[in-house]
Design a protein around this nucleic acid. Structure first.
Lengths: 108, 108
DNA sequence: TGCTTATATAACGAATAGCTTATATAATCA
DNA sequence: TGATTATATAAGCTATTCGTTATATAAGCA
């Protein structure tokens, strides 16, 4: 009935996931809109496997959700059960510009 | 004039600090009231050097503040320049009971 | 079917973080 | 001053995390 109790263990595990610049950048990107892996790779300016492994951690931690749409896999935020994160996510710097620049290159 | 810009690098470093159960517990304790190291050691149920090293990280990260009052050093929250944390800190589980139990033992 | 693109997984080395034990510093008190 | 209490620092070991390279899977297309 009331809000589900949040344990320190659970919260600290989640915060550990966000305590990495690439993963936090991914969260900032996904706040704008759902994004496919190739665009994330471009913005992070890293290798595809590296981005993929960070995405896996975020997914395993329940912070993001994935959907396949033909050959692309789109990631999106999944913060429904973590209301304590909303304010912080909102205050992340905008990634809009960097995400637009990517598409001048075009990854797909 | 406007709010100071927050970088992803800066935020992720701060979140990394909070991504450890002992450090997050310390933050939850300090939300209640400023606390000396010996009480923190008791609640965390760890060794004094371990607690001390976690406190040092929080201090170096600008999350807490210390004041010496005779032989005791009291730590307190320092969140003035990190408004994005306030909601999360507020939603940490209360440490009131655990902090009261400690004083039945009495560390000082 | 074979080729190409998108993504995930595995394996490994390097770097980092965490905890422990031992020791140092600082304050109080007798 | 010496003993005691509170706290910090150092050193070393272990465990975890990170990024890389190589490889696997999956979808689309010719």
């Amino acid at each position: 009935m009331g809000a589900p109790p949040i344990s320190i263990a659970e919260m600290s595990e989640t915060l550990k996931l966000l305590g990495h610049p690439m993963r936090l950048t991914i969260m900032a990107m996904l706040r704008e809109k759902e994004t496919c892996v190739c665009d994330i790779v471009d913005v992070l300016d890293t290798t595809q496997p590296n981005a993929s492994q960070h995405l896996k951690k975020l997914k395993d931690g329940g912070l993001v959700h994935e959907t396949r749409r033909s050959q692309w896999i789109y990631y999106s935020l999944n913060l429904d059960d973590k209301p304590y994160l909303t304010e912080m996510i909102e205050q992340l710097p905008s990634m809009r510009e960097k995400m637009q620049q990517i598409h001048s290159k075009g990854c797909s």
